[in-house]
């Protein structure tokens, strides 16, 4: 990943190399154990389940590629994939840009920083189910605050979680509203940019926008990469907000996020994980759910590799440094 040169021991110094290896191993040991136990084992189990018929109660029965074959005649799966792709594209871009924007504004504030920072972060402190429900109430057409506000300008409020065309944008709005965590991460990174870099740029006569573009952005790019990858994962795993928005839209919200009708309205909130959950725990077909999980994992892992490689290339090119 990085072009750090200092730590690589010169060849031939066998003992130093062994010691270096031991150090790395020591630092990574808990992670390696944890990785095997809490990721490796579930991954193997998931892949194994995906070749079986498994009703969650009786021992899985091998059924070859049946689960994978069924994917091709499952109309809801197509819908779920389309919904999740929508979120991966829209939510990832919107969330990263939004968080970066808000963090950049906050970073420039001179007074009241603490208060505004806290206000912006407040929503991400709320339990996800409650946050979604409250947002639902705020967006509620016919008497909600946003509806009233739009009414002042003579605009009809969208029906949000009742309209298949607006349910996903509505959920995206919720996700932006609770993106305070990413905002704070980016803010911390922005404030962490060494002051002398700005001073140097200022001496060269760069205005604030130029400084932001040429100093801030490149320096915080590792954190931005985190933001993008984190948003992609969030989009891929979007579950609670989709379930709660769907249940509230169908008029059956409850305080814990359980629901009678997943995907309301018209399956527009049926994300891949929601459908996976439905198949595994509502229809008791864990084999199929595991096949879905396997496919999701393989595709998203491949996308991540491409994304990470590309980000690395870009940042390397921009900074003019040697590649890894």
């Amino acid at each position: 990943m990085t072009a750090t040169l200092g730590a690589r021991p010169a060849p031939g110094r066998g003992r130093a190399r062994a010691r270096h290896r031991l150090t790395v191993l020591g630092f990574m040991a808990p992670a390696i154990i944890g990785f095997v136990l809490f990721f490796g084992y579930p991954l193997v189990a998931t892949v194994v389940f995906s070749f079986t018929k498994y009703d969650l109660i009786n021992a899985p029965e091998f059924n070859g590629l049946d689960n994978y074959a069924y994917m091709f005649k499952d109309p809801l799966l197509t819908k779920a994939i389309a919904n999740t792709l929508w979120f991966v594209v829209v939510l990832t871009i919107a969330r990263t840009v939004f968080a970066l924007g808000v963090a950049s504004v906050i970073a420039r504030l001179k007074s009241g920083v603490g208060l505004i920072r806290t206000l912006c972060y407040l929503p991400s402190l709320a339990p996800p189910v409650a946050a979604t429900l409250v947002f639902f109430m705020v967006l509620r057409p016919n008497g909600g605050p946003v509806d009233n506000l739009l009414g002042v300008f003579g605009i009809d409020s969208p029906l949000w979680f009742s309209d298949p065309a607006w349910a996903k944008p509505g959920i995206t709005a919720i996700m932006l509203w609770i993106s305070g965590d990413l905002m704070i991460i980016i803010l911390a990174a922005i404030l962490d940019v060494p002051q002398e870099q700005y001073e140097a740029a200022e001496l060269d006569g760069a205005g604030p926008i130029r400084r932001w573009w040429h100093v801030t952005l490149p320096t915080i790019s590792p954190v931005l990469l985190f933001g993008i990858v984190n948003s992609v994962i969030l989009a891929l795993q979007l579950f609670t907000q989709a379930v709660v928005a769907g249940s509230a839209g169908s008029g059956a919200a409850d305080a814990t996020g359980s629901t009678k009708y997943l995907g309301f309205p018209d399956n527009s909130t049926l994300t891949f994980p929601v459908y996976l959950y439905t198949q595994g725990f509502r229809y008791f077909d864990m084999g199929y759910a595991a096949a879905m999980a396997t496919v999701l994992f393989v595709i998203s892992f491949a996308v991540t590799i491409v994304l990470v490689q590309r980000m690395r290339k870009n940042s390397t090119a921009e900074e003019g440094g040697p590649g890894a």
């Binding site: 509620r140 057409p141 016919n142 008497g143 029906l159 949000w160 979680f161 009742s162 309209d163 509230a248 839209g249 008029g251 059956a252 919200a253 409850d254």
Partner: peptide, 12 residues
């Protein structure tokens, strides 16, 4: 109908 329904309160 959709506009009307979207403004209705929760069942519970």
């Amino acid at each position: 109908l959709e506009r009307f329904r979207a403004g209705l309160g929760q069942e519970y």
